[in-house]
């Protein structure tokens, strides 16, 4: 009995500790525009990622000083290719679901890295592997870094863009409300709590639902 008690406390402490050490260090503001065809099928997500001011500053300096001025544009392209190569494997942290079923993505296209004021922004199009019939089947997506090293939230203004959706379609964004219990359970359920397969970031991610009547 006593042993159980101790064990319990120990586990809880480990769990909270893991949580505390995993606060975000970089953040990205998202602007997402779902694209549809005339048949009412979802084709993919047009995304714009704006990096936080500090991280942007650091990257911009590197780009500026990385070589002669005339080749600046090429360096931007080079960096965008690097990022795309790194993140294609994880579908740019985008998780799509329809009725609990995981949606497959294609590799991104039309990517470009630009400077907006003092911040960097990566724009790209993430197509679905197959066009998706979403009439009466709500499609949901989340975009998050599982380790929560990067915090990814939709921009407070125009975070989602429904202008390319058919009539009768709505976008609903749910802000994360991670309760303590939920996080505790999520971490307890996380079989590889000490490995890199953490799903911590999910609990802090926004859930977006696309509903078409």
């Amino acid at each position: 009995m006593r042993r159980y008690l101790k064990l319990n406390v120990f586990i809880i402490l480990l769990v909270t500790a893991k949580l505390a050490s995993a606060h975000p260090h970089v953040w990205i503001d998202l602007r997402i525009k779902p694209l549809m065809n005339e048949q009412g099928n979802l084709l993919g997500l047009e995304q714009a990622w704006r990096f936080d001011p500090f991280y942007s500053l650091v990257l911009i300096e590197e780009l500026d000083k990385g070589g002669p001025k005339v080749e600046l544009e090429e360096r931007y392209d080079q960096l965008s290719i690097e990022i795309v190569n790194n993140l294609n494997g994880v579908n740019f942290f985008t998780q799509g679901h329809i009725l609990k079923e995981v949606i497959q993505w294609e590799k991104v296209t039309d990517f470009t890295l630009i400077k907006v004021g003092q911040q960097l922004e990566l724009r790209f199009y993430l197509p679905l592997l197959n066009p998706l019939k979403i009439k009466e089947l709500p499609f949901t997506y989340r975009i998050y870094d599982p380790t929560y090293y990067i915090e990814m939230l939709h921009a407070t203004e125009e975070g989602t863009d429904s202008s390319a959706l058919n009539l009768g379609c709505k976008i609903k964004l749910e802000t994360p409300k991670p309760s303590f219990d939920l996080i505790q359970k999520a971490l307890a359920l996380d079989k590889d709590a000490t490995s890199n397969n953490s799903q911590l970031g999910r609990n802090f991610s926004e859930k977006v639902t696309l509903d078409c009547l």
Binding site: L14, K18, S21, G89, V90, P146, T147, N196, N197
Partner: peptide
């Protein structure tokens, strides 16, 4: 107790 755990870097594991 807890610092013995490795700090998490960027995770590039496929999640399902």
């Amino acid at each position: 107790l807890l610092i013995a755990m490795p700090l998490q870097g960027l995770n590039v594991a496929e999640s399902n």
